[in-house]
Amino acid sequence: MAQKLRIAVHKFASCDGCQMQFLNLEQDLLTLARQVEIVHFAEATSVMQQGPYDVSFVEGSISTSTDLQRIQQVRAASRMLITIGACATAGGLQALRNWKDHGEFVRAIYARPEYIDSLAQSTPVSAHVKVDAELWGCPIDQQQLKRVLSDVLARITPRIPGESVCMECKRAGNVCVLVTKGEPCLGPVTRTGCGALCPRYERDCYGCFGPQEDGNARALGRRFQALGLSADEIVRRFRFINGWAPAMRAGAQAWEKQKPIIENMD
């Protein structure tokens, strides 16, 4: 066995849910501990070592000027950088501000807006530094995380499927909620990886795993319109947890009146 890999988990603007998925590996963490050394993981331990790291997992979006600097440091200290979750991979729910006047929010909410150091846009890690692999989801899926970890340990490129949720639905024998009930399911344009969790319970997919590799959100929007959704409802459908991901943005674009305040950074 080669020397143990030095693993770090970094947090940016996020809810910690993806880090919790890491911790919830429970029994597998003991196995993992024999293979790797977790040297930096704020959610798990207060002992935080400096780099270099073999692999850095990054949770959260880039949301403050401090984040802008810190992500550069993380990148420089890491041989491999893997984003975990919708925030780090697509900007997250907090990217909803990207379509609005950020300053207005700050002034409306905080008594002393001058103390608030947040950027006008919430952006994915890939908008700032090179990313080696992206784990999607809100939160990420433990099976996918384990798969990526075992790939990393085997020193091979992590394999992350890019196909649609529909593929997983059909394999699992789930009945299509769009075709049988006319539900505005985002499954056809959403990436698999969740185990088709919502459709399995006869719920429409809301896209928490981000866009599939090459779907057609504009065509799905037209289908939603035929199902009776208004233009505003279609925009809200695409502009949610992964709304800032380019494919979801394109899906909403055709139906929206308002353009982003600032043009996209990636």
Binding site: K146, A154, R159, E163, K170, R171, V189
Partner: peptide
């Protein structure tokens, strides 16, 4: 949509992928 539903429900489509799942 390039969702693949047609191929999944098709009684004759046989394409498949193979992958290895390694224990931790």
């Amino acid at each position: 949509l390039s969702c693949g539903n047609c191929t999944m429900v098709c009684p004759t489509c046989f394409c498949h992928s193979e992958t290895d799942v390694t224990s931790l």
